[in-house]
Design a protein around this nucleic acid. Structure first.
Length: 837
DNA sequence: GACCTGCTGCGGTATG
C-alpha cells in the first residue's frame, strides 16, 4: 500500500467520555457499532431503555460499558484500588448457566481497564464459599436470577445492600416478560427504584412483536418517569429458512409427527456441516431421533448426543461443553438449547416438525451462524405432508418480520402475596408506601384497593377460610410503628425456601444401581414398568430394577428395543402469526398458485383436497361432512391453533346440542377439529341459529373443557406461589402428588367456604387465558362470523381432515364431559365477570 | 393412506 501523508482525522470521541471503551474495543481489533455508542451516550445521559438485537451481536457490551464508563469518569486519575466498591451493578438473567457465562465475558474489560471491581454470579457457582462471602458483602457487580434477587430483598439489611446501586441490566427480557418470573422482576425493580430513584435500567431483548410493551413493563409505571429508549441493535441477520422435501410425496404420510421417514435426508444434512443441532418439539422425540441416527450411523457413537429438560444437569453440561469445543458432531435437542451459551461452531440447524411460531424459529435459526454478520440458516424437516405448508408460511413470517408478541401478565395476586411477605422479611413495610410502590410496576398499575386489602388480609390472617390456623398468619403488625413484619423464624425459613414462581412437574429420578443419575421421568411412566422391563432413556438402553425413595433404579442393558418415556408437557399451539400466514398460503393454493419448493411438492396432495372437497380461502371457514361406519363426522377448519379449537369444539357441541339432543366425540389439532356423532348433526339449523356468533360468547362459551377441574389443577401453581403449600426441604420434599392433593384441598375449601377468595378467581382466569386462549378465541369467532362458511360433502376423508381422524383414536374426548363442562361454565363465567376482567 | 406429539426455567435448611 502506498504511503500517504494525509493525516487521519482524530476520532471526535478519542478523548471524550467514551474513550476507554473505544480503546478497549480497538485493542481487540473491534470497532464499536453505532448502536453501542448510542447506548453508552444514553446511559451517561442518565437514560434507561431497551436494546433489541440478535444474540452474538455485541449487546452485552453495549449494556455493560455504560456503567463502566460512568465509573471511569468519576475517577479520571484512577480509582483507589482498595477496598473494592460496594454493589453498583446488578445483572439479571433467566438462566443459571448464562450467569456463569456472562460473568466470564464481563470480566475481561474490568481487568484490562484496571478497575478495582469484584464481579461474581450469585447463581451458577453456588459454592458455599461464595455464598458466605456474599452474606457479608456483595461484589461490585453481581450477576443473578430473579429468584436470587428476591432472596436478597428478603434480607433484613436489604436496603443497605443496594445503597450504592447505579444500574440494573436485565438480559433476555423477552423470555422473562409475559411470565410470573417477569412480574417478580418488575416487583424487585420497583423496590430498588424506590430506594435508588436515579438508578438506570436497561433491558436486552430479542425481536418480539411488542417492544414498546416490553420497555414499559421493564421501566415501570412511575408517574413522570422519562420515556426511555428503544435502541435497535443489529437485528435482522440474514436468515435462511429452507426445507428437506420428501423425495416421493405420494408415499409421505398424511398424518403423524415423528418424521423418521426423513432419516436419510437428515443424515445427509448433518454430514454437510461441521456441527449440527437437530431441534425437535418434544423430549421423547429427541430420544427417538437419537436412536434412529445412531442406528443409521453406528460410526457416530460418541459424536452425537441428546439434550432435553429431563436429563440430569451433569449430562447436559457435558453435552454443552462438547458442542462448544466442537467435539460433538450433532446434538438432538428440545428448546432446552434455545437459549444460553453461544455455540459458535454450530453451522447447521435442523427443525423436525412444525416450527409452531416465527419467534421460535428465529431463535433456533440464531443458534447457527453465531457471529456478527454471519448467515443463520435453519432447515425444516416435515413430519407429514401438511407441514410443508407450515414451512412456507414460517418463511413468509420470517421475511415479513411478523414476530409474535409476549403479552404481559396482569396483576397475579399469588405472586403479590409472595412479594409482600418477602418485603415484610426484608425490613418490613407500611401498607400505603408499599402499595404506591407496587403500583409503579406495569403489572400492578391497575391493582384495586380491595385486592390490596385482600392480599394484606391473606398474609396476616390467612383470609376468611384459614383464620383459625396460626401458620397462615405469616406477617404481623408492629404495635408501635405500624410496620408489617415477619417475626417467626420458621415462617421466614419456609418463605425463603419457596421463593420463586416455577412449579415443577411430577417426576421421579432415574439412576443406575451404583452410579450416576440420568434424569427424571414421570411417575405414570414408571408405574407401567415391571422389574426386568426395558426402556430407552437419556440415549441409553436400560433395564428397570425397582422404585425406591422416589427413584427408579436401573441397570445398563444392550437391547436398544424398548419403551421410550413420554412426558406430559404443555401443548404449544400454532401461533396466531404463523396461522395467519398459513391461511394466506392456502388461499394462494386455492387460486392455483404454488410458490416455492414446499408448495410445489405438496401440490398433488392439495389437488386431492381440492377434488374431494375444497381448499379454503383465507376468509372461508371450511366444514366437511363425511359419513363413515363410525358415524357422522364434521371437520371444521378455523386454522387457529389447538387450544382455541379445544374451546371452539366444546362451544359448537354445546350450541348444536341445544337444538337437538346429540352427543359428540371430539378431536382437534392446530388446523381444526372433528365432531363425530352417531346421527347427523343439524348443521344448517345450527348455523342459522348462530353457531359462529361471538355475540353470546360470555353465556355460551364454557370457555370450556372441564373448567372447574382445570382451575383446580391450575391452583397447584397458585397455592405454591402464594405460600399456601410448602414444598418441603430439599431431597426430603413432598411428592408432587401430595402437593397436588393439598392444593386441591385448599381449592375445594375456598370454593365452598370462601367464595370471595381472589386466588380461586385467579385460577379460573389463568385457565381461560393460558389454557384456552380465550381472547384469541373471541377474535377467532369474530373473524369466522364475518367470513363465509363453505360446506362440502366428501365421499372419503380428505387430506386436511385425515390427521384429525387419526388423532381421535389416540385420545378421544367424549361429549359426556361436555355436559359437565357446560353446567360448570356459568360458574366460571360469573367468577370471571366478578373479577372485572 | 387408517400411523407414536406435547417445551423451558429457579430456589432452599440445618449441623453438638
Amino acid at each position: 500500500m502506498a504511503a500517504t501523508t494525509t493525516p487521519r482525522p482524530r476520532s471526535p470521541s478519542a478523548k471524550g467520555p467514551l474513550a476507554p471503551a473505544e480503546r478497549w474495543f480497538k485493542a481487540r481489533g473491534w470497532k464499536p457499532f453505532p448502536f453501542q455508542r448510542e447506548v453508552w451516550d444514553a446511559y451517561l445521559a442518565g437514560d434507561s431503555g431497551l436494546i433489541h438485537a440478535a444474540t452474538g451481536t455485541g449487546k452485552t457490551y453495549a449494556a455493560w460499558m455504560g456503567p463502566v464508563l460512568e465509573w471511569m469518569a468519576e475517577f479520571p486519575k484512577g480509582a483507589p484500588a482498595k477496598p473494592p466498591p460496594p454493589l453498583r451493578i446488578l445483572w439479571i438473567t433467566p438462566l443459571r448457566a448464562l450467569a456463569a457465562d456472562t460473568e466470564a465475558a464481563l470480566l475481561a474489560p474490568l481487568t484490562e481497564l484496571g478497575l478495582p471491581w469484584t464481579l461474581q454470579s450469585r447463581t451458577g457457582d453456588t459454592s458455599a464459599k461464595i455464598r458466605s462471602r456474599q452474606r457479608t458483602r456483595l461484589p461490585t457487580a453481581l450477576v443473578t436470577t430473579p429468584e436470587s434477587l428476591a432472596l436478597l430483598l428478603s434480607r433484613d439489611d436489604a436496603r443497605t445492600l443496594f445503597a450504592d446501586l447505579r444500574a440494573v441490566i436485565v438480559d433476555e427480557w423477552h423470555e422473562l416478560m409475559g411470565t410470573k418470573r417477569g412480574v417478580q422482576t418488575e416487583l424487585a425493580l420497583a423496590r430498588l427504584r424506590s430506594w435508588r430513584p436515579q438508578m438506570r435500567t436497561w433491558g436486552l431483548s430479542a425481536t418480539i412483536g411488542n417492544l414498546d410493551d416490553a420497555r414499559e413493563a421493564l421501566l415501570g409505571a412511575t408517574p413522570g418517569r422519562p420515556p426511555g429508549r428503544v435502541v435497535r441493535g443489529l437485528v435482522p441477520k440474514n436468515i435462511v429458512v429452507d426445507a428437506l422435501i420428501p423425495p416421493r410425496i405420494e408415499r409421505f404420510p398424511w398424518a403423524g409427527h415423528l418424521g423418521t421417514q426423513m432419516l436419510p435426508q437428515v443424515v445427509d444434512a448433518i454430514e454437510e456441516g461441521e456441527t449440527a443441532i437437530v431441534f425437535t418439539n418434544t423430549r421423547s422425540q429427541t430420544e427417538i431421533w437419537y436412536q434412529a441416527l445412531l442406528e443409521a450411523r453406528p460410526d457416530w457413537a460418541g459424536l452425537i448426543a441428546l439434550h432435553h429438560g429431563s436429563l440430569d444437569r451433569a449430562k447436559r453440561d457435558w453435552v454443552e461443553d462438547g458442542l462448544r469445543s466442537g467435539k460433538l458432531r450433532c446434538v438432538v435437542a428440545t428448546s432446552s438449547l434455545d437459549l444460553g451459551v453461544d455455540f459458535s461452531p454450530v453451522d447447521r440447524v435442523l427443525q423436525i416438525g412444525s416450527p409452531k411460531g416465527v419467534a421460535r424459529l428465529l431463535q433456533r435459526a440464531g443458534r447457527s451462524g453465531h457471529r456478527p454478520g454471519a448467515v443463520s440458516r435453519v432447515t425444516c424437516v416435515p413430519t407429514n405432508v401438511l407441514e410443508l405448508i407450515e414451512v412456507a408460511a414460517a418463511r413468509d413470517g420470517v421475511e415479513a418480520i411478523a414476530v409474535e408478541s409476549r403479552l404481559p401478565v396482569e396483576r397475579p395476586l399469588d405472586l403479590l402475596a409472595q412479594h409482600v411477605v418477602t418485603v415484610a422479611l426484608g425490613g418490613g413495610f407500611l401498607p400505603d408506601e408499599l402499595l404506591a410502590e407496587v403500583r409503579t410496576t406495569g403489572a400492578y398499575a391497575g391493582l384495586l384497593d380491595d385486592e390490596w386489602r385482600w392480599v394484606l388480609d391473606f398474609v396476616t390472617r390467612g383470609g376468611d377460610a384459614l383464620r383459625a390456623y396460626p401458620e397462615f398468619q405469616r406477617v404481623v403488625v408492629d404495635d408501635e410503628t405500624g410496620r408489617y413484619l415477619v417475626r417467626d423464624k420458621g415462617v421466614a425459613r419456609r418463605h425463603r425456601m419457596s421463593i420463586g414462581t416455577i412449579v415443577s412437574d411430577a417426576s421421579i429420578a432415574v439412576q443406575y444401581l451404583r452410579g450416576a443419575r440420568l434424569g427424571t421421568v414421570e411417575e405414570s411412566f414408571v408405574a407401567r414398568l415391571n422389574p426386568g422391563d426395558r426402556f430407552v432413556f437419556a440415549g441409553k438402553p436400560l433395564e428397570f430394577v425397582r422404585v425406591r425413595d422416589m427413584t427408579a433404579w436401573v441397570r445398563r442393558t444392550t437391547n436398544t428395543k424398548g419403551l421410550i418415556p413420554r412426558w406430559m408437557g404443555a401443548r404449544m399451539p400454532l401461533s396466531g402469526e404463523l396461522a395467519a400466514s398459513l391461511r394466506a398460503r392456502l388461499e394462494e393454493a386455492s387460486r392455483g398458485e404454488f410458490r416455492g419448493p414446499e408448495m410445489q411438492a405438496i401440490r398433488p396432495i392439495l389437488d386431492v383436497q381440492a377434488r374431494w372437497s375444497r381448499i379454503p380461502r383465507a376468509d372461508e371457514l371450511l366444514i366437511e361432512r363425511v359419513k363413515t361406519r363410525e358415524g357422522h363426522h364434521l371437520f371444521i377448519f378455523p386454522f387457529e391453533g389447538r387450544l382455541v379449537h379445544e374451546g371452539l369444539a366444546a362451544l359448537f357441541a354445546y350450541r348444536i346440542s341445544r337444538l337437538t339432543p346429540i352427543s359428540f366425540t371430539f378431536s382437534m389439532n392446530d388446523y381444526g377439529m372433528e365432531l363425530l356423532s352417531p346421527e347427523a348433526a343439524p348443521l344448517d339449523a345450527a348455523l342459522k341459529a348462530g353457531l359462529l356468533s361471538a355475540h353470546n360468547l360470555l353465556q355460551d362459551v364454557p370457555a370450556s373443557l372441564n373448567a372447574t377441574e382445570m382451575a383446580r389443577r391450575q391452583f397447584r401453581e397458585i397455592a405454591r406461589v402464594a405460600g399456601l403449600v410448602f414444598q418441603g426441604f430439599p431431597h426430603a420434599g413432598k411428592s408432587v402428588k401430595q402437593l397436588q392433593a393439598s392444593s386441591g384441598l385448599f381449592f375445594d375449601v375456598f370454593t365452598r367456604y370462601d367464595p370471595g377468595n381472589l386466588l380461586v378467581s385467579q385460577a379460573h382466569r389463568e385457565v381461560l387465558e393460558r389454557q384456552l386462549e380465550s381472547s384469541r378465541l373471541g377474535r377467532t369467532l369474530e373473524r369466522l362470523a364475518a367470513g363465509n362458511v363453505v360446506i362440502t360433502n366428501p365421499k372419503r376423508t380428505p387430506p386436511l381432515a385425515f390427521p384429525l381422524l387419526v388423532d381421535r383414536t389416540r385420545n378421544a374426548v367424549t361429549s359426556e364431559s361436555v355436559t359437565d363442562r357446560v353446567q360448570r361454565m356459568k360458574l366460571v363465567l360469573e367468577k370471571y365477570a366478578d373479577t372485572g376482567k
